[in-house]
Amino acid sequence: MAVESPFTPKSGLVHIVTGILQDLRTLMRQEAQLLRDEVKLEVSKAGRAASGFGIGAGLLAIGGLFLLLMLVHGLHEWTGLPLWASYGLAGLILAGIGGVLLVRARSLAGSVHAMPRRTLYAIKEDAQWIKEQVMSKKT
């Protein structure tokens, strides 16, 4: 009858350690994928916020120029206001619209998270689980 070496894959301790290492490897791959996905999501949100700022500023500039000219001369003709008062009223309207667009873009930018919170939380949970598993194997 052949004597089994204590280091064969069938031995309990080696089998447990091998299983833990395989689980750890799988877990690390999953955490890396979660990190990539979360970073990709945050970059996408940052891009949308940046495009919101750009579009808002561009529309504010172009719209301000055209509306200012149109509204100023229209107000001057229809109301008899001096030309300077018509320019002031048109400027107020454009500044209000531009302000609303910039506030909305700012709130979207505020929801962008530089740190991948869910991934960090999951890694902490996994580390705690591994620690508990190692401690339970010692006892």
Rank of each mutant, 00 (worst) to 15 (best):
49 A>D: 01
35 L>S: 02
27 L>A: 05
44 S>E: 12
49 A>I: 00
27 L>C: 03
127 A>S: 11
129 W>F: 11
124 K>N: 13
129 W>L: 12
15 H>G: 15
101 L>N: 06
137 K>H: 12
119 T>K: 08
96 G>D: 03
123 I>T: 14
82 P>W: 10
30 Q>W: 01
59 L>D: 09
68 L>N: 13
70 M>S: 13
31 E>V: 00
63 G>L: 01
16 I>V: 12
93 I>E: 02
48 R>H: 08
110 G>S: 02
90 A>V: 02
128 Q>V: 09
30 Q>I: 01
104 R>Q: 12
36 R>E: 09
96 G>T: 06
53 F>T: 00
112 V>N: 02
10 K>G: 13
25 R>W: 14
47 G>T: 03
126 D>W: 08
64 G>A: 02
84 W>R: 03
43 V>W: 06
119 T>G: 05
27 L>I: 08
67 L>C: 11
1 M>T: 14
119 T>N: 09
34 L>S: 13
8 T>Q: 07
137 K>N: 11
124 K>S: 14
115 M>R: 15
68 L>Y: 08
124 K>H: 15
38 E>P: 02
113 H>E: 11
20 I>W: 12
49 A>M: 02
5 S>A: 05
134 V>M: 01
50 A>E: 10
122 A>P: 07
73 H>F: 09
77 E>I: 12
102 L>Q: 10
72 V>T: 14
114 A>H: 12
86 S>P: 01
4 E>D: 11
54 G>K: 02
14 V>G: 07
80 G>E: 01
17 V>F: 06
82 P>L: 13
78 W>S: 08
41 L>C: 09
9 P>F: 00
22 Q>V: 05
85 A>M: 06
41 L>N: 07
31 E>I: 00
134 V>A: 04
35 L>A: 04
35 L>Y: 13
32 A>C: 08
36 R>M: 14
58 G>L: 15
1 M>I: 15
104 R>L: 10
114 A>W: 14
27 L>N: 04
100 V>L: 08
139 T>G: 10
14 V>W: 04
63 G>K: 02
86 S>C: 03
130 I>H: 10
73 H>N: 12
127 A>N: 11
112 V>C: 00
92 L>F: 05
37 D>S: 08
21 L>E: 10
78 W>V: 11
131 K>H: 12
40 K>S: 13
9 P>N: 04
97 I>F: 08
